[in-house]
């Protein structure tokens, strides 16, 4: 039986680790590669690197960064931020990233998902979605809306519809990031996560809002998520990956403990 995964997200800006609260107030908090190595040794199951500057000029820096990560980390990791073409995705994958995350560019041109899935495989194509709660309307019946450009631009696109569409287009995994919960440490958006996890046949990674080990338990059980993504709670040393996984294990969730 597959274990539930603990995923750590590192926001990278110009090669440095950054963390935002509600997608703003970004500050640098250290060397991402040293941090990643620390999490790897502490038993994290997967890493996600988001290039939050995501400019064209930064793309080469990111490729060198990915190569360096791949020399030091021997578990799967993905990269996201500013991926706009099959070429971007293929380069990052060839540099050593197991998977790539698409977000804004896929909303602007949804065929990007199928093109990347065709080039590097569905298993390597992750659709990341930034979602906020809205009043349900005819256009957005699920009551959740996709926002892009780092969580600042509303799109009028229904969150649930987009998740299902992403799967149909060939995404092999979804990251569900709640803008409302991001950085709050009040817990994941359980309803949103469960709604999407129950509607698709691909794995779902819950993101945004982890503050305590109980939050991970809640989203992996009640939220039906396959993986829980954390950031702040491990970056600032409140919890280690080991402590989080032992907590989950003690509450009966199957996690990887031998490493």
């Amino acid at each position: 039986m597959l274990s539930k995964r603990l995923v750590v997200c590192l926001d990278v800006r110009g090669g440095k680790l950054a963390k935002s609260i509600k997608f703003v107030d970004t500050k640098d908090i250290g060397d991402p590669i040293a941090k990643a190595r620390q999490y790897y040794e502490d038993g994290v199951d997967e890493l996600v690197f988001y290039d939050i500057t995501a400019s064209r000029e930064n793309r080469d820096i990111m490729i060198h960064f990915v190569e360096e990560v791949a020399r030091q980390i021997f578990i799967p990791f993905s990269v996201g931020g500013g991926i706009r073409s099959v070429e971007d995705a293929t380069k990052l994958r060839n540099a050593g990233a197991e998977k790539v995350n698409v977000n804004t560019a896929a909303v602007k041109r949804k065929d990007l998902i199928s093109e990347i899935a065709h080039a590097i495989g569905s298993q390597s194509t992750i659709l990341s979605m930034d979602i906020r709660k809205v009043t349900p309307t005819k256009e957005m019946p699920s009551g959740y809306e996709i926002v892009v450009n780092g969580g600042v631009t509303p799109t009028g696109i229904d969150g649930l519809w987009w998740a299902k569409t992403g799967e149909e287009l060939g995404a092999g995994e979804l990251v569900i990031n709640s803008i409302d919960a991001d950085g709050t440490k009040d817990g994941y958006e359980i309803n949103l996560t469960r709604m999407i996890a129950d509607s698709v046949g691909i794995p779902v990674i819950a993101s945004g809002g982890a503050g305590k080990p109980e939050h991970l338990y809640d989203v992996l059980t009640g939220g039906h998520a396959d993986a829980a993504l954390v950031a702040s709670i491990v970056h600032y040393g409140e919890y280690t990956c080991r402590v989080l996984k032992e907590y989950l294990n003690n509450r009966g969730i199957k996690v990887r403990l031998n490493y």
Binding site: M1, L2, S3, R5, D45, S122, Q123, G172, E173, G201, I202, P203, D226, A227, R256
Partner: peptide, 10 residues
């Protein structure tokens, strides 16, 4: 259960 079988397993 999902396909692909993706993740850590015994």
């Amino acid at each position: 259960l999902k396909i692909p079988h993706m993740g850590w397993n015994e």
